Computed example of a mutant assay.
Amino acid sequence: MKHCWYIGLVFFVIMGCNDDVVPKPKAYLRLEYPIANYVKTQVDDIPFSFEVNTLAKKITEKDIKSTTESYGINIAYPSLKGTIYLTYKSINHDRNNLLAFVKDAQNFTQKHTIKADEIIDRAYENKMNKVYGMFYEVGGNAASQSQFYVTDSVEHFLTGSLYFYAKPNYDSIFPAAKYLEKDIKHIMETVKWK
Rank of each mutant, 00 (worst) to 15 (best):
K2D: 14
H3A: 10
Y6M: 11
I7Q: 05
I7P: 02
G8E: 07
L9H: 03
F11C: 14
F12D: 00
F12G: 00
M15E: 04
C17I: 09
V22I: 15
V22R: 13
K24L: 15
Y28V: 04
L29N: 08
L31F: 08
P34F: 13
A36M: 10
A36I: 02
A36F: 04
Y38R: 01
I46T: 03
I46D: 01
N53D: 15
N53Y: 05
K58M: 15
K58T: 14
T60I: 08
T60K: 09
K62G: 14
D63L: 13
I64F: 12
S66D: 15
T68S: 13
Y71C: 01
G72H: 10
I73G: 03
K81A: 10
G82F: 00
G82R: 01
I84S: 04
Y88A: 02
K89C: 01
S90F: 04
N92L: 05
N97I: 07
L98Q: 13
V102H: 08
K103Q: 14
A105E: 08
F108V: 09
T109M: 11
T109I: 13
K111A: 12
T113M: 12
K115S: 15
A116Q: 09
D117M: 11
I119A: 12
I119C: 10
I120R: 06
I120S: 08
R122N: 11
N129P: 01
Y132T: 01
Y136Q: 05
E137L: 07
V138E: 03
V138D: 05
A143Y: 13
S146H: 10
Q147K: 12
Y149I: 00
D152Y: 00
V154A: 08
E155W: 01
L158Q: 01
L158H: 03
G160I: 04
K167G: 04
P168K: 01
P168I: 00
D171N: 11
I173L: 13
F174P: 02
P175F: 05
A177I: 01
K178N: 11
K185A: 07
K185D: 02
H186Y: 08
I187Q: 02
E189I: 02
V191S: 02
K192A: 06
W193F: 05
W193Q: 03
K194P: 03
